[in-house]
Design a protein around this nucleic acid. Sequence first.
DNA 1: GAAAACGAGGAAAACGATTGCCGTCACGCT
DNA 2: AGCGTGACGGCAATCGTTTTCCTCGTTTTC
Lengths: 343, 343
Amino acid sequence: MSDGRETREETLSDRGRAATISEVAALAGVSTGTASKALNGRGSLRAETVARVQQASDQLGFVANAAARSLQTGRTYTVGMITTDSIGRFSIPLLIGAEDALGAGQVSVFLCDARDDPIREQYYLRTLLSRKVDGIIVTGRRTQARQPVGAGLPVPVVYAFISSADPHDCSVVPDEADGARRAIRHLQAVGRQKIAHVTGPGHHHSARVRAAAAAECADLVAPTLYGRWSEAWGRQAAGILLSTGADVDAVFCGSDQIARGMAEALHEAGREIPRDVALVGFDNWDVMVDGCRPALTSIDMDLEGIGRSAAELLLAAINGDDVGGRRARPCRLVPRASTAVPA
Amino acid sequence: MSDGRETREETLSDRGRAATISEVAALAGVSTGTASKALNGRGSLRAETVARVQQASDQLGFVANAAARSLQTGRTYTVGMITTDSIGRFSIPLLIGAEDALGAGQVSVFLCDARDDPIREQYYLRTLLSRKVDGIIVTGRRTQARQPVGAGLPVPVVYAFISSADPHDCSVVPDEADGARRAIRHLQAVGRQKIAHVTGPGHHHSARVRAAAAAECADLVAPTLYGRWSEAWGRQAAGILLSTGADVDAVFCGSDQIARGMAEALHEAGREIPRDVALVGFDNWDVMVDGCRPALTSIDMDLEGIGRSAAELLLAAINGDDVGGRRARPCRLVPRASTAVPA
DNA sequence: GAAAACGAGGAAAACGATTGCCGTCACGCT
DNA sequence: AGCGTGACGGCAATCGTTTTCCTCGTTTTC
């Protein structure tokens, strides 16, 4: 391979400006149209011609100009993802799931962080439309339904995690009630009868939905304690629970953070987990469930799956399928030591 | 408002396909060239004409096709951001910072998650080049220098958090040694003499750099303990420290997670923080520093600032400035209760 | 009062790729 | 011999903007 060094594809490293298809065509001694066909496997060309063009393309490190292509074809192979809340713990798995599903279709993702600001959101919407994305995924931290991001948009929109207030819009959401029921049933399955529920703010949609489902699934030993989504609240709630003298043998917490605070406080009060009190969290957030002692049983909303599913629906919508409507996806319980049955 | 409904700008909501500039021009009764000038404030036009075009544009909800524009101008007002490791706790602030700086320049960000896979990385690099991004930011979880993402690329590249092995490339990194020194000096300032250092894996660049700086800054009371970046290791390390009977009055931990584990274990062993042992973490990760009891003093690498700075440098590079070289940015110590001086 | 300057806006050529249409050639059939 | 038929590739239109000339009037200026 003495000349291997020379002809090795200079891919991406042709210092300076990038090559165009005309240059490839010239080098291969064909017309630009033919070069295009060769590179895209269209039309009918001799194998030898295709190979020649391919080689010229490699040699020049040619990468087709997406702008020119999309101008012609009308497709950009790009979707926009708007996170209405800031990018964070919830958006990431959604993003990863979406990328997963889209990457397979060679589609890439434009991420826009609206930071809870309607102005920013509209601004991003405009940019996305100007960029002629093939579709848009809207996500956010809260599961509560929100106003549609825009009406009669020229591209399909799918809501992931959050849902659109318009029932005709396509939304993929976690079935939080299902998650809560799983938590309760699991506690019952490990023999607990006196279950309490501690969760986030009462004005928070997720908190109410989960609490309602939990209450409906079992006779809770105490009224639901609403507070914040923090460890501090978990600790505080433990104090409340203990001070009321209520006889509790399990607590279903609305988040892993609350559960972790609860675990600490119970431990310090001399209650052993899971022997005296079993504990279930919500979110299955690795750093919390692993950091907690004992490791925390938790409900996983499968955010990645939601992202993937949303992306798949979006692809379908882009292909013209009708995918309207709200889809709730079940949760999954991940059992760990905090609800283990003693050996 | 009987006709208000009709003339209200239908922005973004002209159901179906979007309007083109020719349609705007036709509606305003001018040529497309003139319409373009009117909307972009170029050329010399009568104010009345500009207004007419503007109104037509609003009425049709016109948004310029970015593909067509960039085909013509060569600029896309888009930069790519490649995270070599998965998107996570470190990339987010970087991304936010970058978006911040770029958003001001009306530039948006294409996020690509290479997931530590060189194939994916090259694939994304190709897409970004094909999309003719104006520049690329490369980030990753580790601060260690990495091979350049490509040689002689047609667009400028800036490395954020990680750095490029090629010293001519532009990299913006946290000065971790500075962070370590600040931690040690702070402990000394609150009167601690017998300081230990517990950190992550010895093969991890950050761990070594920080440990070296710490050791150079004070006579550590024990050799650095290398382990993992986890709470579990923090707990374990506390056990080691205590069992050796070393007389320790402060521990500088290589991460907030380690520090938190350490705090718990020390507490359980009857050591009071900060009275008996003061504690400093690293990363200033909200959920850890707040969850820790007492709240954890920590070193903040100002990731958002790094992202912002990288983006600004990239913009400068896009404008033709030479911004090569490696820039280390100082860290910041955030004091909290874990090192508080007793009142 | 003629020439120059200027202001306003139109015509058309880019930008880089895709694609439908058409020409050309070679071959095989009647 | 004449014609039809594929195979192969070139030509040129097209996508939607921007931008560079131009071309007109209409003022100014000497």
